[in-house]
């Protein structure tokens, strides 16, 4: 069986072979093929957006995606939500000795395909191999570079005003619960799929029709409850959400109920949540619904100016509860 050994990480012949046969082969582009210590990029006409992220996910393959696709989507999405056009990505791999090379190749191919779809180039990379148990199979660190072509664009929570609307692009909790349902410690069999996807086109569509988008995020770890708290953290505003309007797939809801978790705090990898002016809300909604990743978009709440800096949720039976940021770990509970 072909597996990764420590020699694949020592910079010698094995490393070169791995780089040639996997990384160059699949990531193939003129910038990467400079094959130098640094890749020299051309001039970028506009403000730069830079983001970095590390991907550690168990299991590495899950319904709807894998760690490779996730790493590209996550990086592209982080660039997209600030209004940047994603251009380049670098990727660092930390691999546990013993990982099957065909598995590594599947991950690389998945990254390459996703990058192609997003029209971004993987321009630099690095591989390290560590001992058994030092990492769990494979970790990927990425840096993304994008360009903000519109010089006037600056989305920030300071733009939020009373009456603004909160829009969510679809169901919540799919990624987090999908991954959790596949963990070895659970014996759950569900058809929950990760929503892992590229959101740059959806964001571009939105920014094309409106100049009154206050802020956009992809609510990953901590779920929409945490992202919404971050939105208003440094403002005098509060947000009121209507639980009835927040879509949750029934299998996600069920699994959350079984182990005592709340979908509002579960990670998404293919959703955006944004705050927009009342005036433009319907127009934005319309354009979002035309994108296949935004079919279920809805206005789920609005901004109020009560100076209390809270996220309130009107519950399905009409009560009110305060949503704080995620506290503690997401662990299955019995009570």
């Amino acid at each position: 069986m072909n597996i990764i050994t420590l020699e694949h990480g020592n910079g010698g012949e094995y490393t070169h072979e791995l780089v040639r046969n996997l990384f160059y082969k699949h990531f193939q582009n003129e910038l990467l093929m400079q094959q130098s210590d640094s890749s020299i990029l051309g001039n970028i006409g506009g403000k730069l957006a830079v983001t970095t992220d590390s991907f550690v996910v168990d299991p590495i393959f899950f319904p709807g995606g894998d760690i490779g696709k996730l790493s590209i989507c996550g990086t592209v999405n982080d660039l997209a939500v600030v209004g940047a056009k994603p251009l380049y990505i670098t990727a660092g791999f930390i691999i546990e000795v013993g990982l099957r090379i065909d598995i590594l190749e599947r991950i690389i191919i998945s990254m390459a395909n996703t990058a192609k779809e997003a029209n971004v180039k993987i321009v630099a990379g690095d591989t390290k191999v560590v001992g058994k148990g030092d990492v769990d199979k494979i970790y990927i660190n990425t840096t993304g570079i994008g360009v903000i072509e519109d010089n006037t664009l600056y989305m920030n929570s300071s733009n939020i005003v009373e009456g603004d609307k909160v829009i969510l692009s679809g169901t919540i909790g799919d990624h987090g619960m999908c991954v959790m349902s596949k963990r070895a410690e659970f014996d759950f069999d569900t058809d929950i799929e990760s929503d892992c996807s590229l959101l740059h086109i959806l964001v571009t569509d939105i920014l094309e029709v409106s100049e009154n988008v206050r802020i956009i995020r992809d609510p990953t770890r901590g779920g929409i409850a945490t992202t919404l708290n971050e939105f208003i953290e440094n403002t005098q505003m509060s947000i009121v959400l209507n639980e009835e309007y927040i879509p949750v797939r029934s299998n996600v809801k069920s699994m959350c109920k079984m182990i005592g978790l709340d979908p509002l705090y579960i990670a998404n990898e293919g959703k955006i949540i944004l705050i927009v002016s009342t005036k433009d809300a319907e127009k934005i909604l319309e354009v979002m619904k035309r994108n296949k990743l935004g079919l279920e978009s809805r206005i789920i709440g609005e901004v109020i100016g009560d100076n209390r800096n809270k996220v309130y949720l009107k519950t399905e039976i009409g009560g009110t509860r305060i949503l704080n940021m995620l506290e503690g770990d997401l662990l299955p509970r019995i009570c």
Binding site: D187, T190, R249, N251, K253, S254, M255, K257, M258
Partner: peptide
């Protein structure tokens, strides 16, 4: 099965 989630 509980609403789309099967388990032993």
């Amino acid at each position: 099965c509980f609403e789309g989630v099967k388990t032993n």
